[in-house]
Design a protein around this nucleic acid. Structure first.
Lengths: 158, 158
DNA sequence: GTAACCCCCGTACCTAGCTACAGAGTCAAG
DNA sequence: CTTGACTCTGTAGCTAGGTACGGGGGTTAC
C-alpha cells in the first residue's frame, strides 16, 4: 500500500495517512527516513548524524530492528542551522540560540538579551558593508574608471 | 635616540619623527613591528603571518637584515577581517570583498552587486532573528513562566 | 658586552565541522 | 525469496583557519 504523498498540499502534517491535522501533529505523510529529510533540508545525511552526535539535533528513538523516522520539525531545525551558520554563528552558539526557544523563558531571558546584543552588532556591521558596497556600485556607474574604493573603513573602527 | 612616541595624539602618521603629516603618510610614529600591530588589531602574530602566507594581507619588504615595518593600513585591514569573519564570511570571501575596494570598479562592479545581494539576505535573516528574540524577551516579561518560544520559524523558511 | 627580548622561517600540531567508508542489517518490489 | 537500494554503527580522513614551537639571528637595556 502506497503512502498518499502530495495529497495534502503545502502541509507537512498528517496523522495516520489522510487526516488533516494542521497543528501539533507529530506525524508526517510518509515515514521520513534520514535520507529524505537530508534532501529536504539540503544537507548530507552524514551531517545529520554528526549533529546528532554533538547533540545539536535530537535522534529519534530507533524502533527495534528498523529505520528511524524523522518529523518536519527536524527539517525546520536543519534549515535554521544552515542559515544561522551563514550568519557566522558557530554550532555551539546555534545550540544555545535554539535552547532559548526550547527552554523556560525565565531562565534564559538574560541570555536572550545578550544574544540580541551580539546580533545587533552584526546587523550594524552588515549594514555598513552593504551601504559601502552600494556607494561603490554607484560611484562605478558615475565614473567607471574610478580606482581604489575604501571598503575597510566601513566597519574596521570599533 | 628614542622615538617621539605619543607626541602626536590621535594621529598615527609622522614622516621622519615629528612631521605632522595627517594624510597619506606611509610612516608611523614608531616603526611598527609585527607584534605591535598584532596587539593593536587584537590578533596573534602567527595569524598575521598566516594571512600573509595565503595572500590575504601584503607582506612589507624586509629591510636587509632587519625587522619588517607595518603601517596603520595593515591594522585597519586586520580589524576589517575580524569583523567580516564574525559575519560569516570565509577568508576567501573576505579576500574578494577587499579586492573590490582595491581593484578597478569597472571589472568588479558585477561582483559587488552579487556580494551586496548575499549581504542583504544575511541582513534579512539577522533582522528576523533579532525581532524574534525581541518578542521572546517581551513575552518573558509579560509571562515569566511561558515555555517554548519558536525561534526556528523566524528564518528557516526559504 | 651580555642578558633579555624580539623577529624570521619552517614545520608540526590543533580544533571545528564535516565527509567517506566498511561491514552488517533492513525493507520492499518483482 | 531474491535483489538492490537504503540504513545503522563505528571509525578514519579531510579542509579551513589558525596556533605552537624550535633554531637561528637581531636589538636594546643595563
Amino acid at each position: 500500500m502506497p503512502y498518499y504523498q502530495n495529497v495534502v498540499k503545502n502541509n507537512t502534517s498528517a496523522q495516520g495517512y489522510l487526516t488533516l491535522n494542521l497543528y501539533c501533529s507529530p506525524m508526517t505523510e510518509k515515514p521520513a527516513t534520514i535520507n529524505i529529510i537530508a534532501k529536504k533540508a539540503g544537507v548530507g545525511l552524514e551531517t545529520i548524524r554528526y549533529y546528532q552526535r554533538i547533540g545539536l539535533i535530537e535522534e529519534p528513538e530507533k524502533p527495534l530492528s528498523g529505520y528511524r523516522v524523522y518529523g518536519e520539525d527536524t527539517v525546520a531545525r536543519l534549515l535554521f542551522i544552515q542559515r544561522a551558520k551563514e550568519l557566522g554563528f558557530s554550532l555551539a552558539e546555534i545550540s544555545s540560540l535554539l535552547a532559548l526557544g526550547d527552554g523556560s523563558c525565565l531562565e534564559t531571558k538574560a541570555l536572550a538579551i545578550h544574544k540580541l546584543d551580539i546580533i545587533k552588532n552584526k546587523l550594524h556591521d552588515l549594514q555598513a558593508i552593504a551601504s559601502t558596497l552600494e556607494k561603490l556600485i554607484q560611484s562605478c556607474e558615475s565614473n567607471p574608471f574610478h580606482h581604489g574604493c575604501p571598503l575597510i573603513t566601513a566597519i574596521s573602527k570599533k
